[in-house]
Design a protein around this nucleic acid. Structure first.
Lengths: 341, 341
DNA sequence: CCATGCTCTGAGAGCGCTCCCAGCCGGAAT
DNA sequence: ATTCCGGCTGGGAGCGCTCTCAGAGCATGG
């Protein structure tokens, strides 16, 4: 039971004095106790408990040049980013893995280019050991800003080619997943397979289109319709697709939210799923998949795992000797068959 | 243009040397430059720029005992908390206000009682100047854990009476808002007004029930139905209400999400809104209100503003002389009339 | 011309910690 | 018994910064 010390927080000095050892030995014990004889370790541990000693983080950082904190940079482009379940899961994974590494999560919320200066100053100021960021839009200047601080960074999602040369990132196999989804529709005997894509300035959306084209090399361009990853846009795109090609019998939708919208439109128009039109989504987002009817066949990706992976990569970067750049990671996807296809 | 210094980061010492002044003077300039003659200020500023000097945060913290960081404690009880638009808005407000105060947001994600120890150690370790937390469930042990660290803290939402004595908090006028909502229904001439409440272990839900009862002192208990703040629970509650009292002509729902569910049920049953049943929600959550039909009359609260207020209160606590406890703040609510009532 | 008072500057003492290095001690080898 | 060695321990030097305090510099008043 720590003493209800009323004065200032006890220092290592106090612990050492109480344990009858030197500050150096006390420090060794606090940091794992390697190379200290058991009886002394015990004494120091006891003193720590009795005094309720907690190491002063600033003092430690000052000398070790490590502060055990990692910045998570959340850029908010137009609308909701945070309330996006995708982000939630990824940040959760990050948070968990960071905790496992005894590191703290410092949230940097970027609202626009006006914040770039502040962010750069913060990252450059040695407040954090590294940073985690997400590549959102191809035209985003943020990656360059982060890169310029020369702080170790790992991206979530493959940055667009325009970005700085070799930034490690974690992404799922968007293209492969898309291929699998489309092949599944083909295997089901569908002949007229459409694709509702995401915004063209995001690599994930682009990759999924490429995956679609990989399988359907000469698909009618009329079968491609662009959405913006929202449910409404999916509904709208489906309506347009139905108007353009009433004979469509399969749709691969670039994310679950849009797929849910597409399902709504199909039901409204009296089109049976999967009998008339088979639908495959992407993401396997719990909150969406659970409530669609019929239940959504979709491409699963381990979002939380990707978050954890980002942290692991960053830790390797931080501990890594020399400026060697760790390889980026592409995580596998898998098709989850439910009722919509 | 900062020099592309390749070596270690420049220190104040280096800046002072380059400017031809002492470290003390350089420090003064870096910290605002009060009491330093203009020509010297200029020289130091120039040296800072040329060297690309950024103060070492740890060293500064070590002596000032302030580190310019505030913890935001997010507890995740059962399900989504983060993806909750309510939280998003509040955290956004917090983030913005913190930025305005040049303070950082350190996110502490608590997944369960197992994390309490870690959190306590972190808060007690002087990593942050203060903490912001949210009171979620009455039975939550977290407030007590936080309180024991003796770190300044401000709560979002009124903590339950069982919690530590006098913790400052920011909450909206749940009871008053509820009263206004119910009175509006009364003014509309509704005679049989029901209430769909939130979970009874949250003070906000309780306060809203109290507001309902304030106006409808002897309402039939059958008119009270409990949900859990989710859309589905609202739909279910509405169905039950309709079964119990088919003559119901007004409903005050404890949050917008449940109100949206209630609206769905009403439409399904062919009940016209607002002609047959008038519906009033609570929160004025943009994402919900915009998509209901008819558009939802609801009680507005300034969620982002509450987040900012939490920070302001905390800052006052931190700068405050002595252990004086600043008063909690109850922010006003206002009824927003739309089509559902 | 010196005393006085003011403003501005710089020397230096830490803040609490880690880590290098010298020294101590006990046991094995000679 | 002496030497040597290796494992432990403690002294002490900093990490980069802030802040107190003494003193330098200058202008003013007597």
């Amino acid at each position: 039971m720590p003493e209800q010390s009323t004065g200032p927080r006890p220092t290592l000095e106090a612990v050492a004095a109480r344990a009858g050892v030197s500050r150096a030995t006390a420090s060794r014990v606090v940091n794992g106790g390697a190379g200290v004889r058991p009886p002394l370790v015990e004494k120091v541990r006891k003193a720590v408990d009795e005094l309720g000693y907690v190491p002063n983080h600033a003092a430690r950082t000052l000398v070790t040049r490590r502060n055990g904190a990692v910045a998570v940079i959340i850029a908010e482009p137009e609308f909701r980013v945070f309330s996006d379940p995708f982000f939630e899961q990824q940040v959760r994974g990050i948070s968990r893995e960071l905790t496992a590494h005894d590191a703290q999560l410092v949230l940097l919320w970027v609202e626009g280019p006006g914040d770039h200066d502040r962010i750069a100053r913060y990252l450059g100021g040695g407040h954090v050991d590294g940073a985690l960021a997400f590549s959102l839009h191809n035209d985003d200047a943020l990656p360059a800003v982060i890169d310029r601080t020369r702080i170790p960074v790992v991206f979530g999602g493959r940055p667009s080619p325009g970005t700085s040369p070799a930034v490690p990132f974690v992404d799922c196999d968007n293209r492969g997943g898309a291929r699998e989804a489309v092949r599944h529709l083909v295997d089901l005997g569908r002949r007229t397979i459409a694709h509702i894509s995401g915004p063209q300035d995001q690599t994930s959306a682009l990759d999924r289109i490429h995956g679609y084209r990989d399988v359907l090399v000469d698909a009618d361009p009329a079968l491609l319709c662009q959405g913006d990853f929202t449910e409404e846009s999916g509904a709208r795109a489906m309506a347009e697709l139905l108007d353009r090609r009433p004979d469509v019998d399969g749709v691969f939708v670039a994310n679950d939210l849009m797929a849910s919208g597409a399902l709504l439109t199909l039901r409204e128009r009296g089109v049976r799923v999967p009998e008339d039109v088979a639908v495959v989504g992407f993401d396997d987002m719990d909150s969406v998949v659970r409530r669609t009817s019929p239940s959504l066949t979709t491409v699963h990706q381990d979002i939380e795992g990707m978050g954890r992976l980002m942290v692991k990569l960053l830790m390797r970067l931080l501990e890594g000797t020399g400026p060697e750049i760790p390889p980026s990671v592409i995580t596998p996807t898998s098709l989850v068959r439910r009722d919509s296809a």
